[in-house]
């Protein structure tokens, strides 16, 4: 566990040294600002953070992979994986350290959006419960996205390949799930809805924390972390 903390700390520092992270942070804030502004500053519009929170995961599909694509791909490309994995640290600790490092940076990103609920609270009426459940939802979505990004970063030494693969997979499960489900019937429809990230996330933005939603995000996150550990082992066996 000590190794995980050491690596998490290094990863978080590395994010802050990286220009990509700052660009992602800045663009994320600009985009969320535009969404917030266009949803609230219209005559007759309800002043609420609901629209913002329901659209954020869509933008994360593009932003999170930019943060995670480097994680292992860069270690493989530069060869630092060799010095890292000949130190007394095992494969699972490496993956967890990287995961928590990215997750902490993601939480910094989320913290920067706190300005919007604070703004609403100051000038209107904030539904605190809904805001809290939305943040929980965004946290869970982020953790899942990071684990998917991390998995693809473990598969290749090319950051761009890792990033594009993550974006494609996440986009399919975020955007297409609802769309495909709407055109199906019966069990297939239910199945597709259950696989759709948006279906699960929407409940959080309505202020509902459902066990099925939390379980969905937690288990898929763990699944991808597990796959990442296996992929790391596999690449060393080759």
């Amino acid at each position: 566990m000590r190794n995980v903390t050491v690596l998490t700390q290094r990863e978080l520092n590395a994010q802050f040294y990286s220009p990509i992270a700052y660009v992602v942070l800045a663009v994320f804030l600009v985009v969320s600002g535009i969404i917030f502004g266009s949803a609230n500053f219209r005559p007759g519009a309800e002043s609420s953070v609901r629209v913002l929170f329901s659209l954020v995961p869509m933008t994360l599909v593009f932003f999170v992979p930019l943060l995670t694509m480097r994680l292992l791909a860069d270690e493989f490309r530069s060869g630092t994986i060799e010095t890292l994995m000949t130190a007394p640290i095992n494969d699972a600790e490496v993956i967890l350290g990287k995961f928590f490092g990215a997750l902490l940076f993601y939480m910094v990103m989320l913290a920067a959006t706190l300005v919007y609920p604070i703004f609403i609270a100051a000038y209107g009426q904030l539904d605190t419960g809904m805001a809290v459940s939305s943040y929980l939802g965004m946290f869970l979505v982020g953790a899942l996205f990071i684990s998917v990004g991390l998995f693809f970063s473990t598969c290749t030494q090319n950051q761009v390949v890792a990033g594009v693969c993550s974006i494609v997979l996440l986009a399919v499960f975020t955007f297409l799930g609802d769309y495909l489900a709407a055109n199906q019937e019966g069990t297939l429809r239910v199945l597709l809805q259950h696989l759709s990230i948006n279906t699960h996330y929407e409940n959080f933005t309505r202020g509902m924390v459902e066990l099925s939603g939390v379980t969905f995000f937690a288990t898929t996150t763990i699944l991808f972390l597990f796959l990442a550990v296996k992929m790391l082992e596999f690449r060393r066996w080759r």
């Binding site: 290094r10 520092n13 590395a14 040294y17 990286s18 530069s78 060869g79 630092t80 060799e82 010095t83 000949t86």
Partner: peptide, 15 residues
């Protein structure tokens, strides 16, 4: 119990 210097001396450039 070992120290290892790989061929290309890989390091993290940002540190």
């Amino acid at each position: 119990n070992i120290g290892y210097l790989p061929e290309s001396a890989p390091l993290y450039p940002e540190m």
